[in-house]
Design a protein around this nucleic acid. Structure first.
Lengths: 140, 140
DNA sequence: TTAATGGTAATTACCGTAATTACATTTAGA
DNA sequence: TCTAAATGTAATTACGGTAATTACCATTAA
């Protein structure tokens, strides 16, 4: 398997935690809904904990709970918690710096990509976990 | 090498073509600015040609030229010409359809991701190749 | 006829990712 | 205090997307 699905799994997990409320959910239980390995779930939970979005406790009766109300968690927070922060270099080989285009293209592209990324982030920031939960409850 | 840099290379190539105007540019020459293999350049050019953005001719004195004015080519067109059209599935394993969350999360996520993608595309649509060229000429 | 060019298939190598295994650590409760 | 259930995390494996490269055919102007 290869495709990055951390964001999708993070939203999935957060939605489950929102639904069970204060009861700590185990990675084992979560993994049966996501249909993946419990370790994968724990890795995502670990990233969410570092971002202050969940709290996890060990031992019997341990598990994870949200540390904020679903209405106060945006999808942008979930996205930033699990995905790479700094964008990778645009080209693989550095373009020819002797060529005016090669010398400047990365600066120009970075600016455009940043605007696109900000626009995309605004959409994620505009959706809360509570809305996702409401949408899912509507059908379920 | 692994990272997808087709969009960056496509903009790079299109900018070069815009600068040389009517003179057909060879993949060999383009590759020295991009600093990659001529075949990689030809593959991108092939995609751009399929999208109607460039015309290529074979043989001696052959090469590629833009088929539209730079002011009439948006970065969105370049992006769509070279990148995958349909988004891949969100999860790797299908979520548990017995769970309300597993059953509905993909529909909800798809909707959010589509909004984010549209917002991002709007930024690309808002920038023309002519603007990129102008930006590069400003420094060069 | 030749040399320069694009078109494209096939192969290779690399790298990010999820999946899996293994094991240490923590914790509640009998 | 012992045990069972849970997290934390490192190490390894396998897969898949990508660029790079090679090879070869087709086209074209001189």
């Amino acid at each position: 398997m290869a495709k990055n699905c951390r964001f999708a799994v993070a939203v999935h997990i957060a939605t489950l935690l929102a639904l069970v409320g204060d009861k700590p959910a185990s990675s084992e239980w979560i993994s049966t809904s996501v249909n993946t390995n419990p370790v994968v779930v724990r890795r995502i939970l670990s990233a969410l904990a570092k971002a202050g979005l969940v709290r996890s406790s060990r031992g019997i009766k341990g598990g994870s709970v949200l540390s904020k109300a679903p209405a106060d968690i945006t999808l942008l927070e979930l996205h930033r918690a699990v995905d790479e922060k700094d964008p990778p270099p645009l080209h693989n080989q550095q373009p020819n710096q002797q060529c005016p285009v090669g010398k400047n293209i990365q600066r120009v592209l970075t600016s455009v990509l940043e605007r696109a990324s900000k626009a995309s982030d605004a959409m994620f920031a505009d959706t809360t976990l509570a809305e996702v939960v409401a949408d899912i409850e509507r059908d379920a």
